[in-house]
Simulated scan of single mutants.
Amino acid sequence: MRFTPVHIQSFLSMALATGLVSLAHAQTEAYPDRPVTVVVGYPPGGSTDLTGRAVADQLSKKLGVPVIVENVGGAGGAIGAHKVSRATPDGYTLLLGANNEIAINRLISTSVKYSYKDFTPIGLVASTPMVLVASTQSGIKTADQFVSTVKAKPGKYIYGSSGVGTALHLSAEMAKQQAGLFMSHIPYRGVGPLTTDLYGGTVDFGVYVLSSGLSHIRSGKVVALGITEKKRSAVAPDIAPLADHPALSNMDISVWFALMAPPNLPEAVTARLRRALAESLQTPEFRKKMEDSGSTVAPLNVEMGKFLMDETAKYQKIVEFANIKE
Rank of each mutant, 00 (worst) to 15 (best):
residue 310 D to H: 04
residue 204 D to R: 07
residue 223 V to S: 00
residue 157 Y to R: 05
residue 79 I to C: 08
residue 261 A to E: 14
residue 250 N to T: 14
residue 20 L to P: 05
residue 133 V to E: 13
residue 76 G to W: 14
residue 105 N to G: 11
residue 287 R to T: 02
residue 92 Y to K: 11
residue 185 H to G: 03
residue 228 T to Y: 05
residue 119 F to T: 00
residue 39 V to R: 15
residue 165 G to I: 10
residue 301 N to S: 14
residue 120 T to V: 07
residue 103 A to T: 15
residue 280 S to K: 02
residue 312 T to D: 01
residue 279 E to P: 04
residue 105 N to L: 12
residue 233 S to C: 00
residue 180 G to A: 03
residue 277 L to G: 02
residue 275 R to P: 00
residue 114 Y to V: 08
residue 23 L to Q: 12
residue 281 L to G: 02
residue 35 P to V: 05
residue 11 F to W: 11
residue 89 P to Q: 04
residue 208 Y to S: 01
residue 131 V to Y: 00
residue 33 D to K: 15
residue 174 M to A: 04
residue 95 L to N: 11
residue 150 V to I: 11
residue 192 G to A: 13
residue 45 G to T: 11
residue 158 I to P: 01
residue 293 S to V: 02
residue 216 H to I: 00
residue 291 E to L: 09
residue 76 G to M: 14
residue 19 G to I: 01
residue 144 D to L: 04
residue 286 F to Q: 03
residue 287 R to P: 02
residue 56 A to G: 04
residue 66 P to F: 10
residue 150 V to K: 06
residue 169 H to A: 01
residue 304 M to K: 07
residue 125 V to H: 01
residue 17 A to N: 11
residue 159 Y to F: 15
residue 143 A to E: 00
residue 87 A to N: 09
residue 219 S to W: 02
residue 251 M to I: 15
residue 206 G to N: 08
residue 182 F to N: 13
residue 214 L to H: 07
residue 37 T to Q: 13
residue 102 I to P: 09
residue 29 E to T: 12
residue 77 G to V: 13
residue 114 Y to I: 08
residue 76 G to S: 15
residue 304 M to S: 01
residue 178 Q to N: 00
residue 48 T to V: 06
residue 10 S to T: 07
residue 230 K to W: 10
residue 17 A to H: 10
residue 220 G to F: 05
residue 303 E to W: 08
residue 194 L to Y: 03
residue 145 Q to A: 15
residue 91 G to E: 09
residue 159 Y to L: 04
residue 36 V to E: 05
residue 162 S to Q: 11
residue 246 P to Q: 05
residue 42 Y to G: 06
residue 267 E to P: 05
residue 315 Y to Q: 11
residue 112 V to N: 04
residue 173 E to T: 02
residue 143 A to K: 02
residue 146 F to S: 05
residue 70 E to H: 10
residue 147 V to H: 10
residue 239 I to Q: 07
residue 270 T to W: 09
residue 292 D to E: 12
residue 201 G to V: 05
residue 284 P to A: 03
residue 21 V to R: 07
residue 145 Q to G: 01
residue 279 E to D: 14
residue 165 G to R: 09
residue 41 G to T: 14
residue 305 G to Y: 08
residue 302 V to G: 08
residue 30 A to R: 12
residue 133 V to S: 12
residue 90 D to A: 04
residue 1 M to W: 04
residue 29 E to R: 14
residue 198 L to Y: 10
residue 226 G to C: 00
residue 67 V to A: 04
residue 125 V to R: 03
residue 81 A to E: 05
residue 264 N to D: 12
residue 103 A to F: 10
residue 52 G to F: 12
residue 159 Y to Q: 00
residue 213 G to L: 04
residue 265 L to T: 09
residue 3 F to T: 07
residue 101 E to D: 15
residue 65 V to I: 15
residue 284 P to K: 10
residue 164 V to H: 01
residue 49 D to E: 07
residue 38 V to W: 09
residue 3 F to M: 14
residue 294 G to A: 06
residue 162 S to A: 09
residue 305 G to V: 02
residue 78 A to W: 09
residue 88 T to Y: 04
residue 90 D to G: 10
residue 17 A to D: 00
residue 8 I to G: 12
residue 203 V to D: 04
residue 275 R to S: 10
residue 200 G to A: 13
residue 284 P to R: 09
residue 206 G to I: 01
residue 301 N to Q: 12
residue 303 E to R: 15
residue 180 G to L: 11
residue 283 T to Q: 06
residue 298 A to H: 02
residue 104 I to C: 12
residue 58 Q to N: 06
residue 129 P to A: 09
